[in-house]
Computed example of a mutant assay.
Amino acid sequence: MTETRLLMIVEDDEAFAHTLKRSFERRGYRVLLADSHDALQALLAEGHQPGFAVVDLKLGGASGLTCVQTLRATDDEMRIVVLTGFASIATAVEAIKLGASYYLAKPSNTDDIEAAFARDDGDPDAPVDGRQTSIKTVEWEHIHQTLVETGFNISESARRLGMHRRTLARKLEKRRLT
């Protein structure tokens, strides 16, 4: 049976994970931490059945999307929020397709995450403005889509994008958000 106030945080940044853990514990959640897909699977194998999960999109060199898929397979009703410093349309779409309830870009706080857990429906009144997309944004989204397609393999992504691996690595460093 799913524990309604049990929260699984899958985050490889230890300091950030512990900060989130303490904040959610003050709100009455029981919190489990995993820093990888393997650690998540081990906790689930122990019989833990969280009602909520926060998953970082990029776990070291791996994708958090596999964690989303694993969590969704465990419980179809679980509220899963993907939290990332590498936000893009491509990964947002993939996260939702794989079962995430919501997708938040860092920096986000406990209030933002808890509000995302509470949201059941989309917002039809969300503004649909004709925002101008810069070339840098289009480039970033193309890079991110390629990263998703290659499972965040930098070398293969660079090859597909027709750029040197170091060039891609520098671009990724510049866009990194904490």
Results as ranks from 00 to 15, higher is better:
2 T>K: 15
2 T>D: 11
4 T>I: 11
5 R>A: 12
6 L>D: 07
6 L>P: 00
10 V>P: 02
13 D>T: 08
14 E>K: 13
17 A>K: 06
18 H>L: 14
20 L>M: 12
21 K>P: 00
22 R>H: 14
23 S>W: 04
25 E>R: 13
26 R>L: 11
27 R>M: 10
28 G>R: 12
28 G>L: 10
33 L>A: 11
33 L>R: 13
35 D>R: 15
35 D>W: 05
36 S>L: 14
36 S>K: 14
38 D>G: 15
38 D>K: 15
39 A>V: 12
42 A>H: 14
44 L>T: 09
45 A>H: 15
46 E>Q: 15
47 G>I: 13
48 H>V: 08
49 Q>M: 12
49 Q>C: 10
50 P>V: 09
50 P>L: 12
52 F>H: 09
54 V>A: 05
58 K>W: 04
60 G>K: 12
60 G>M: 10
64 G>I: 06
65 L>F: 04
66 T>A: 12
69 Q>P: 04
70 T>M: 07
72 R>S: 05
72 R>T: 08
72 R>P: 08
73 A>T: 09
73 A>M: 09
76 D>A: 13
77 E>L: 11
78 M>H: 04
79 R>I: 01
79 R>T: 03
85 G>Y: 01
91 T>Q: 08
92 A>F: 03
93 V>P: 01
94 E>A: 09
96 I>C: 02
96 I>D: 00
96 I>G: 00
97 K>A: 01
99 G>F: 04
100 A>M: 03
101 S>T: 10
102 Y>A: 07
102 Y>I: 00
107 P>D: 05
108 S>C: 10
109 N>G: 13
110 T>P: 09
115 A>Y: 07
115 A>N: 11
116 A>K: 05
116 A>Q: 06
119 R>E: 09
122 G>T: 10
124 P>D: 13
125 D>N: 15
127 P>L: 15
128 V>N: 06
131 R>M: 14
131 R>H: 14
132 Q>P: 03
133 T>W: 13
133 T>E: 14
137 T>K: 12
139 E>L: 11
140 W>A: 10
140 W>F: 09
143 I>Y: 03
144 H>Y: 04
147 L>W: 02
149 E>C: 02
149 E>G: 05
150 T>P: 01
152 F>G: 00
153 N>F: 05
154 I>S: 00
154 I>D: 02
155 S>C: 00
156 E>K: 07
157 S>K: 02
157 S>F: 02
158 A>C: 01
160 R>F: 03
161 L>A: 00
162 G>E: 05
162 G>M: 06
163 M>R: 02
163 M>W: 01
164 H>A: 10
165 R>F: 01
165 R>C: 02
166 R>S: 05
168 L>D: 01
169 A>Y: 06
170 R>E: 11
171 K>M: 13
171 K>V: 08
